[in-house]
């Protein structure tokens, strides 16, 4: 056969094979250490919550129905579960999408406005701090108790430099008796009902 043909084959080395060198002792030491670590790690997990979650998970508040322990409800915790995805942990919202709560005239105005928005929801364009937003704010009627709504509203009215009166669960109950199951508000309706913020 020609010297020029199949050059790549001709210059090839042997087919690979395995040597017989022993496994280094350190490898076995390493395997042993990992086995001990594995057993220890399993044992260390005893007592951890069964259903996953870790340090990033938001603590879920136990349901508190009794009105007289309303002050014990942590409005901040409810905020981080229910509100912070849109309005952000900083209360700044997201420009063009979700209005800010910090320094918002609607948050600081008559408390009946905030109770209405949270209880029944809000739709359509709304001007907040000079910018127009056009989105949908879901209602929390039936999802949060009166005490919880009062707690989270009190929280947003006192955070991020906001400084307005606390909201009492009784105000939420009064709103319920007055409006019942109402369709979401628009900003014009809010102004007509409660005055301009």
């Amino acid at each position: 056969m020609s010297e020029k043909k199949y050059r790549a084959h001709q210059r090839e080395g042997p087919e690979p094979e395995e040597g017989v060198r022993e496994v280094p002792k350190l490898v076995f030491v390493y395997i042993l250490i990992l086995i001990i670590w594995g057993v220890g790690y399993y044992a260390w997990q005893i007592g951890k919550p069964m259903q996953g979650g870790d340090s990033r998970s938001v603590a879920i508040q136990p349901a508190i129905n009794s009105e007289n322990v309303a002050t014990l409800i942590d409005g901040g915790a409810i905020y981080s579960i229910q509100c912070s995805a849109c309005h952000q942990a900083t209360g700044q919202g997201i420009p063009g999408a979700f209005p800010p709560l910090a320094g918002s005239e609607w948050v600081l105005a008559d408390s009946a406005i905030l109770v209405s928005i949270l209880q029944d929801g809000l739709q359509g364009p709304i001007v907040v701090a000079g910018n127009t937003y056009n989105g949908v704010m879901p209602y929390f009627r039936g999802k949060l108790s009166s005490a919880e709504i009062a707690a989270v509203l009190t929280y947003i009215r006192s955070e991020w430099g906001n400084n307005a009166d606390r909201i009492d669960p009784i105000m939420v109950d009064e709103h319920k008796t007055r409006f019942g199951e109402r369709v979401p508000w628009t900003s014009d309706e809010l102004i007509a009902e409660f005055g301009k913020p």
């Binding site: 395995e18 017989v20 496994v23 490898v27």
Partner: peptide, 21 residues
């Protein structure tokens, strides 16, 4: 890689037992 490295170097892979593990 187990084929090419020993093939090009022309020497066996060092340990059969390690490859088993």
């Amino acid at each position: 890689a187990y084929y090419i490295i020993p093939k090009i170097l022309g020497r066996p892979i060092i340990s059969y037992k390690l490859s088993l593990i």
